[in-house]
Design a protein around this nucleic acid. Structure first.
Length: 210
DNA sequence: ACATTAAGTGATT
DNA sequence: AATCACTTAATGT
């Protein structure tokens, strides 16, 4: 009988655990082993028991970009999206350390989705976590360094008025920079902590260190 | 003293 | 990063 981590015994129902133990393949791979290459058809979904797997993407010129790691008790979100429909993988999976993993055959995970609520939520959770990660990355790319925009905005204001005292509420600044008041408040707070600025009500003072 | 508005914060998405 | 919900501080009446 397979000795699944305690973690899984808590999240999966007993019947599912038994199926996992009997119908699933368990494998140990050495660090550096290629588990899945780009273009390969995904035929099983890995769940990491110990060690870790790195998931990366390669661009046209063959450069490699690390996307994320799969740690123990986790699975790969990309796998679901591909293997459910038998699409080739767009990512490369390599064992980062010596890794123990379970391979769940595609047909099985399909059945489990309707049979076991705990499985469904496990799948949804790994997808959700990854998706949130992606959203955060997009935010950072699109709204690149709002803090820098804020600083140059303040400098510009100061130059225009010829004063280091700026009479604007956080709300007004937020409107001009097309963001929310809360965000400006937080950024300004940081600048204050860094001794770059002094904050008052409806006004702030730029310090020389800015 | 009380109401109103600005700013600060933690949690959540 | 944005939004929500809530607290705290400042200001006006």
């Amino acid at each position: 009988m397979m000795d699944l981590p305690v973690h899984f015994k808590e999240v999966f129902e007993p019947k599912l655990l038994r199926e996992m133990e009997s119908k699933t393949e368990r494998r140990s791979v050495k660090a550096g082993t290629l588990i899945l290459g780009v273009g390969q058809i995904v035929r099983a979904m890995p769940i990491v028991l110990s060690g870790s797997i790195s998931i990366s993407r390669t661009d046209e010129e063959g450069r490699e970009i690390l996307m994320y790691y799969i740690s123990p008790n986790e699975s790969c979100a990309m796998t679901f999206t591909c293997c459910m429909e038998q699409f080739p993988s767009e990512v490369k999976a390599v064992a980062e350390d010596d890794t123990e993993l379970i391979l769940v055959p595609v047909q099985l995970m399909d059945q489990w989705l309707v049979k076991y609520p705990s499985w469904k939520s496990f799948v949804m959770t790994t997808i959700r976590l990854r998706f949130n990660d992606l959203l955060r990355t997009i935010d950072q790319l699109v709204f690149q360094r709002l803090d820098e925009r804020l600083v140059s905005y303040l400098k510009e204001k100061s130059r225009a008025t010829g004063s280091t005292l700026i009479n604007l509420s956080h709300e007004q600044i937020a409107t001009e920079l097309a963001t929310s008041r809360v965000v400006i408040s937080r950024l300004l707070k940081r600048l204050e902590n860094d001794k770059k600025v002094l904050l008052y009500r409806n006004q702030l003072k730029l310090l020389n260190s800015l």
